[in-house]
Simulated assay, not measured.
Amino acid sequence: MKSPKRLARIAGLLYLLVGIFGGFAEGFVYPKLYVAGNAAATAANVTANPGLARLGVVSDLLDQTFFVLLALTLYVLLKQVNKNVARAMVVFVLLAVAITCLNAVFEFEGLRVATGAVDTSSLGTSGTNALILVLLDVQHYGIFVAQIFFGLWLAPLGYLAYKSGWFPKPLGITLMVAAGVYLVDLFVAFLLPGLSTEIHGFLGIVPAIAEISMVLFLVIFGVRIPKPAKQDERALALA
């Protein structure tokens, strides 16, 4: 009875680390470096903050490492509910991790160009600035591509949470809804970029509620295991 709770709390701590490192990289570092469509400003930001850029890359890599460990821990915890669905959850996470780690390489290469580690003198200042912007642009939109799988992994997680009986059913439902919201946010960003800037913040509300609630439940409660019936207790005692 204690093992599932222990596994769930480990998963909760890993999920918390994913949020901390991912939030630092995407919520703090990237907005200070990347200015959409402005090569000179982006290059100046990266050149002036090389240490911050390096921290962003390392944070991303740590974030994705903990994300893989989180998926494996949840797989061990929830595979008894439905092994195929649990496997799908892990596959979605691995795809998201692969894309995000590749994105970090583009950001790091942008830093190398900005700091002169790569000789781009033949391009001139404007050409070098443009190259830095392109590299960070690829990283920026690569995050949106990874969001497909950041969203999709919540669907099997929500289903397993709902079916297991170990979590509040509204939490499982909210996780599955959040998966759909992530996908809507992604496609709006590519198809209707003007609208995306207006509604992106609102679309982030449901996923934030779902994932923060899941983290808190895992860390505080672990899982909610129903007490066995008295007959079951007697049978176990006799056995």
Score class of each variant (00 low, 15 high):
L218V: 00
P168W: 03
L191S: 15
V145M: 11
V134D: 13
L123Q: 08
P226D: 06
Q80Y: 12
L52V: 06
A229W: 06
A130I: 03
V35P: 04
F202Q: 08
T174Q: 10
A104I: 00
A229L: 14
L236R: 11
A41N: 00
T197E: 13
V18M: 06
V90M: 12
G37Q: 12
K163H: 09
K169C: 02
I173G: 09
V219Q: 08
L7I: 11
I212S: 09
T197D: 13
A43W: 00
R234P: 07
V219C: 08
E109I: 12
V76I: 12
I209Q: 05
A44L: 07
V215P: 01
A36D: 09
E233A: 12
L192C: 10
D137E: 15
K2E: 13
V181G: 00
V145K: 14
L62P: 06
L136A: 01
G56D: 06
K5L: 02
E198P: 10
V105C: 14
N49W: 09
K2F: 15
V215T: 03
L95E: 07
V81S: 12
L62S: 04
V184D: 08
L61M: 13
L238S: 14
L95Q: 07
T197C: 14
Q80W: 14
A48L: 05
D232V: 15
L236V: 07
P226L: 11
T174C: 10
